[in-house]
Design a binder for these strands. Structure first.
Lengths: 211, 211
DNA sequence: GGGGCACTAGACCGGTCTGTATAAGCCCAT
DNA sequence: ATGGGCTTATACAGACCGGTCTAGTGCCCC
């Protein structure tokens, strides 16, 4: 009688949920549509009723990844943990640190797709580039708020730290987030020398160091 | 009569050469054994005479990648371009800068394999981790020579910059090497403040900046 | 010249992939 | 109750995958 509480009865949502779980965990190339429909408990024809091809499903997955991971976790989490732009930039690596300790650490799906689909003309590859660009837009926004000299260059450097630490975590380095955060503090300190010397940074640094 | 000058008549070498070209360019998952034997101009049975499985061929490819890329290009190139350990660390990004401008930029095969084969127990995945560790061993050696406080941590941070810039180049950012090099200079400068103030760094920095 | 060996060419096997076709079941609204 | 649309289950097509088998070819060395 009393079944599971709202077992995501909607087939479309079940497909999207299963795609998110399987694609993010094992990659879009390793997971076939059969695995997704089996995990979702729907018929394959139902999937192809909503998506013309697997590629379109992958694109929908990446949109969802941006909503959940980029916006719902990185941006919201960083904004919640610190008030100043410098503190929010550093807080990204606090989030990463917790992320890297998880046994089901799955890496950045945009990086994974970018490298899995090497054809630069492929729409899925281009979508990965676009979603990574959107992450950088958030970093650039924070950099502008922090008043750095070159917000675009700064966001690129910060993103290099993020991506490098994610790959390092994929190797098994659980301290990669702290290592990248240390470098990030140097980046901020170098900016503060020539821009300003507000106390927000030291506050965020103390908070991060204390842990 | 006069055929192509020594067309790598040896079938084993033809297989290894084709594996290197195709695997490094398109990834070990996207390239099948049929494509390799076709490119090498050998019979499939010849491949399976020398390698028990595709996985073993991939392992042989990664060994060759370490010989050619890690040792023959990164380590030899950095050692040739600068004499001091600090200069050699920075020279890595000079090499990367030229690499990133190439139209056939293929990325780091070890990172690609690491993310393509997500199973941490898989020997190919573990081999990728090992080859990345070997790169870090070279960085650690330079860090020790430079006299940094924490050579292991320093090599991890430097490697994060390398890996992050490679991913950024995969996105299409042709300036990623210079961006990472700028951050690398900050790392070296931070070390010099607390360790020593030898002139090698400033020499290397001048050399790198002057270009 | 003849035996042995590496190599070639191509068919072939079982499995997996994306995507389609078909037929039956279910639910809801008229 | 009776359609009609959504969903299901299942089978299937065609391509590709890693890997095997076989028959035949050329070459080198005794």
């Amino acid at each position: 009688m009393c079944e599971s509480p709202t077992p995501t009865r909607n087939p479309l949502e079940r497909i999207l949920d299963s795609s998110y779980e399987l694609f993010s965990q094992h990659g879009v190339r390793a997971v076939g549509v059969d695995a997704i429909v089996a995990h979702a408990g729907v018929a394959k024809m139902t999937l192809y009723r909503y998506f013309a091809s697997k590629d379109e499903l992958v694109l929908a997955f990446m949109e969802r990844r941006e909503q959940r991971w980029t916006k719902g976790w990185v941006q919201a989490g960083a904004s919640h943990r610190a008030a100043s732009p410098e503190g929010r930039l550093l807080a990204i690596f606090d989030l990463f640190d917790e992320w890297f300790q998880r046994d089901d650490f799955e890496g950045c799906s945009f990086i994974n797709v970018l490298l899995e689909i090497d054809d630069r003309q492929h729409p899925v590859h281009q979508a990965a580039v676009r979603h990574l660009f959107n992450i950088r837009a958030f970093l650039k926004h924070l950099a502008e708020e922090a008043g750095v000299r070159d917000p675009d260059g700064f966001s690129r450097r910060w993103h290099i730290l993020m991506k490098g630490s994610i790959v390092a975590a994929g190797e098994g380095d659980r301290g990669a987030a702290r290592a990248a955060q240390d470098v990030g503090r140097l980046l901020l300190a170098a900016e503060d020398i020539t821009v300003d010397h507000s106390e927000h940074v030291s506050k965020a640094s103390r908070q991060a160091v204390a842990r």
